[in-house]
Write a protein that binds this DNA or RNA. Structure first.
Length: 721
DNA sequence: TTAGATGAGATTTTT
DNA sequence: TCTCATCTAA
């Protein structure tokens, strides 16, 4: 096979196939290239057959890219190859094997919000008030335990607080409930295969024989379960190749263990290690700045990346007062780059730490008519209307799924409220029946009239489609169902923008089923649901259209852009991560910073605001104060920027008018509901509501000529009259 | 008993 | 912006 396009180091890494291989691949060093060449090499040289290769990646996007490139190299399709994310490969494995754990193959995959719904039900059942623990906290902690393979029994040993004890009680019931619902969560997807392998060595041996060569991308981000999975599968043949960069490990909070890559040589003592240090992406200014920060970490392998692209421009540092000014600064710099360097919108990416930080940017971009696309945030498949449609499908496929049942039983509203569902739930426990099976017979529960009729009708409807599963294909069934349930009609009747959006989204989900069926004509609804559960927004990112991309630093991993804006750098960390201690948090933040900088090919702008600091961050300082200082001055240049204007934003959705005026008053202590106030612009009005705290106090005011519109004023100029 | 309105409060990163 | 608890009308 022709390996001329590789440098010597890359070539050696590709050709080494007789022992475990560890490749340290620094940012932009051609990691994907090595992996794809290696897969092609294995096949072309006849070392293994395509179907004997297992290649795991971190995201669907990365898997798609890998498939595409391997296909191009082999001039041939890659359908036989097992290239996918850990989660999707495990989901497929479980389809065949989960019966060994007492689930059926139509099991549901619960996402975060499903998990939280289930936890809320459990908490209500065992009388744990939401004030003692938040359902979200419970979910995070359970997920953390699972990612470290800590079962409730072992978790009990390390209990310190009453809260922990309560969480573990919920953890036990939660696991049982999942099983009753024939459902698994994301962590189970990884943990269950391990459990099956441990219980049944014959099954393990089957997969060891099936997958003769294992390649793992982004190995630094594997957690304990993923590590053990790979280790077990490779134990026999020891044909394994892992690629990663310890400096880009940014998922510690999710259980990823950087020790997995650092200790690979211990786990596979006969392994051979390669280090790729030629960078083909960024300029040296960017690379040196990024490395000068991450070099302060102690848990890392020393490397010295050098760019083949020359020195490049200095990094720009911009200080502003607040997030609005910051957004303006981004636009200013962006327009200058377009003018001077003849760039187009899709040369730019704006990165931030948290999704919420995108709002101010969005406002400014819209006002300046600059096209942008936000990746992440509320994802398509997490929208209410989409989850509702999927909820119906999930229930039909898996009648045990009570979370989907509760979600759909009263949508569109059919007169079945909380009280009625509670009665059914109690009855189902009394009779030791499925919740779904109780609906058919409302009489013993003393549910009569409208509610009783609705229950029977709902039961009949779901049963009907459950039987149709074998007769109709996924598209036909989904369309018939949405029609019969009247979801589209429900949204069409409403006459507001939001519901128009929802209408469109329902159509879009139907289309996506069609598209899925085109791709995989033999597939079932269960297959569709599986794919959808494991999909994220970044998977849909593409460069065909001309827009600025905005996303979190985490989402940006693996991508590259000519110009990167890194905003909100004053923002510190939350010192509340359960997993990490201070040193680990600091080191992971440095790596996050390193990842962000090395996304850029030519130019980086660092932005921070002096008057903004999120609560909780004070104890840590923040990236700006710590990490920008770690960059030598000769790599940076201060760019000054001044502009502060009064803004007026009309929210077209609600008709509300938002006024933002820079810091005039900071507290509303003197005001109360019912007070008459005078506003600098809108005139006289009456206070209807006060809320928020600190700088974010808001006041709702009804003005004389304000019709019935809701008016919200932030940082308002109000005078009591 | 349900549906809708209203006010109060919260907000990391993701497979 | 979003979610949740509480109140009110039907």
């Amino acid at each position: 096979m022709d390996l001329k396009k590789l440098n010597n180091n890359q070539k050696a890494a590709v050709e080494a196939v007789d022992k475990p291989i560890l490749i340290f691949a620094g940012a932009g060093s051609g990691k994907t290239r090595v992996l794809t060449y290696k897969i092609s090499y294995l096949i072309k040289e006849g070392i293994v057959k395509p179907e004997e290769i297992l290649a795991v990646t971190f995201t669907n996007k990365a898997a798609a890219v890998m498939k595409q490139r391997v296909a191009a190299l082999l001039k041939n399709n890659v359908q036989d190859m097992n290239i996918g994310t850990f989660h999707s490969i495990c989901a497929k494995l479980l389809r065949n094997e989960i019966r060994h754990l007492g689930f059926t193959k139509n099991y549901a995959i619960y996402d975060r919000s499903d998990q939280i719904s289930l936890i809320k039900i459990i908490m209500a059942e065992i009388n744990v008030s939401k004030n003692s623990v938040m359902p979200k906290t419970v979910r995070n902690k359970i997920s953390y335990y699972k990612s470290k393979l800590i079962d409730p029994k072992s978790a009990l040993k390390s209990v310190n607080t009453i809260q922990d004890k309560i969480i573990i009680d919920i953890y036990i019931i939660y696991n049982n409930s999942l099983k009753e619902n024939n459902a698994v969560d994301f962590d189970d997807l990884l943990n269950f295969p391990l459990e099956i392998f441990n219980n049944n060595l014959r099954i393990l041996s089957k997969y060891q024989k099936l997958w003769k060569y294992i390649l793992v991308d982004e190995y630094q981000d594997t957690n304990k379960a993923q590590f053990l999975l790979v280790k077990m599968l490779a134990e026999k043949h020891r044909n394994i190749c892992v690629v990663g960069d310890d400096d880009q490990s940014i998922y510690g909070w999710r259980g990823a263990d950087i020790r997995n890559i650092l200790d690979f040589e211990k786990d596979f003592p006969e392994c051979k290690t390669f280090t790729l240090e030629n960078n083909y992406r960024s300029t040296n200014q960017i690379l040196q700045a990024a490395q000068s920060v991450v070099r302060n970490n102690t848990d890392r392998v020393d490397k010295d990346l050098l760019s083949v692209n020359g020195d490049g421009d200095l990094i720009g540092v911009i200080e502003t007062h607040d997030e609005m000014e910051e957004a303006d600064a981004v636009i200013n710099a962006l327009q200058k780059e377009i003018k001077m360097k003849k760039r187009t919108f899709n040369d730019f990416s704006v990165l931030y730490r948290t999704n919420a930080q995108s709002r101010a940017l969005e406002d400014s971009f819209r006002r300046s008519a600059i096209p942008y696309k936000i990746i992440g945030g509320t994802r398509f498949y997490e929208r209410k209307e989409v989850k509702d449609v999927l909820g119906y499908l999930r229930l039909i496929v898996n009648l045990d799924d009570t979370i989907s049942l509760r979600r759909t039983i009263n949508f569109p509203p059919r007169g079945i409220g909380l009280k009625t569902v509670d009665k059914c739930f109690i009855q189902s426990i009394k009779d030791n029946k499925k919740l779904f099976d109780v609906l058919n017979n409302p009489e013993p529960m003393k549910i009569r009239g409208k509610q009783g009729d609705s229950l029977i009708a709902f039961h009949k409807l779901i049963n009907k489609y459950n039987e149709l599963l074998i007769k109709l294909n996924a598209s036909e069934l989904a369309r018939a169902l949405v029609e019969e349930v009247g979801i589209l009609k429900f949204y069409k009747q409403q006459d507001n923008l939001e519901d128009n959006d929802r209408y469109d989204n329902v159509l879009e989900i139907l289309n996506s089923i069609d598209e899925f069926m085109d791709r995989k004509p033999e597939a079932s609804i269960a297959d569709f649901l599986e794919e959808v559960s494991l999909l994220t927004d970044i998977d849909e990112w593409n460069t065909d259209e001309n827009y600025v991309t905005m996303m979190t630093v985490h989402s940006s991993k693996g991508l590259e852009f000519p110009v990167v804006f890194l905003t909100g750098l004053e923002d510190g960390l939350f010192p509340l991560s359960i997993a990490l201690n201070e040193k680990e948090i600091m080191e992971e933040e440095r790596r996050l910073f390193y990842v962000a900088l090395t996304r850029s090919q030519e130019m980086v702008y660092l932005l921070y605001a002096t008057d903004r600091r999120r609560s909780g961050s004070d104890s840590w300082g923040g990236l700006a104060s710590r990490f920008i200082k770690e960059i030598p001055e000769n790599f940076m240049e201060n760019i000054s920027f001044s502009s502060a204007m009064t803004r007026k934003i009309v929210n077209t959705k609600t008709g509300a008018i938002k006024m933002k005026i820079k810091r005039t008053i900071t507290t509303f202590d003197d005001f109360k509901v019912g007070d008459l106030v005078e506003h600098a612009i809108f005139g006289e009005g009456k206070i209807r509501a006060l809320s928020g705290s600190g700088e974010n106090q808001r006041v709702g005011v009804a003005f004389k000529d304000g019709l019935k519109k809701k008016l919200i004023v932030k940082f308002a100029k109000l005078k009591k009259i």
